[in-house]
Design a protein around this nucleic acid. Structure first.
Lengths: 122, 122
DNA sequence: CGGAATCCTGCGAGATACTG
DNA sequence: CAGTATCTCGCAGGATTCCG
């Protein structure tokens, strides 16, 4: 997969690649939760709400792997682990904002379309 | 819409809602395939590449339901069905472009991060 | 050509319990 | 507090076959 020359056809692949990476149930919510600054594990858990510790662990690990969040361990008692966004993570969260705006703007419209669509075909 | 006061908590929900709607394997690829103009079923299938007939049908149907694509049937022999983006669909594809840009820009970086991460812990 | 119906599979994700 | 280890289940998504 070399990315050297990139005609328009390729970017649909690129987007869906990113989307399937970032479009899971929790990734973006965690990123957004970290926008305000570094947080600790259970802090994020509280902030996101509804996420299991299992999934939070997984999500954070893959985010760390991708260099989107940074993990800092503080060996104290009790142990503290801080998570924060890297520059890459912040740039992602900025991009996510555009999506958020789009979502906020068109959510009602979509909702209406669905209702209309469902109304006519039982 | 009311973007006046937006407490950080709300938009993360909105984004992930949109993402889980749009972040599946095919939706965006189909939308992108339709950007250049209206296409017929098998045209889209060819253009996307790798999608099964089943999934294309499903994807197009939910996109139609959401008012993102429009379906036009032409009763001829052989029958022709044309799909095209609605204005809402175009606005989505514009937003997707931002994501595409981000993806193109940072893909290599992410790739590197992964390699580095995987390299140190077997 | 453009679908619908059906069957089958793997992975995303929740619940729970245990460790350091 | 911050994880790891299992077990389980639903559903996205593929392949294949039939229909107008």
């Amino acid at each position: 997969m070399d990315v050297t020359a990139k005609p328009a056809g390729t970017d649909c692949r690129a987007v869906s690649e990113i989307l399937s990476r970032v479009g899971d149930k929790w990734t973006i919510q965690v990123v957004v939760a970290l926008r305000s600054g570094s947080q600790r594990f259970n802090g994020i858990k509280r902030k996101v709400g509804g996420i299991s510790q299992q999934m939070l662990t997984r999500t954070l690990k893959t985010l760390e792997r991708d260099g989107i969040v940074e993990r800092t361990v503080r060996h104290s008692t009790p142990p503290q682990v801080e998570y924060s966004l890297t520059p890459l993570g912040h740039s992602l969260s900025e991009t996510a904002r555009h999506l958020a705006d789009w979502a906020a703007t068109h959510r009602g419209e979509i909702e209406d379309n669905r209702l209309r669509y469902d109304a006519r075909e039982p």
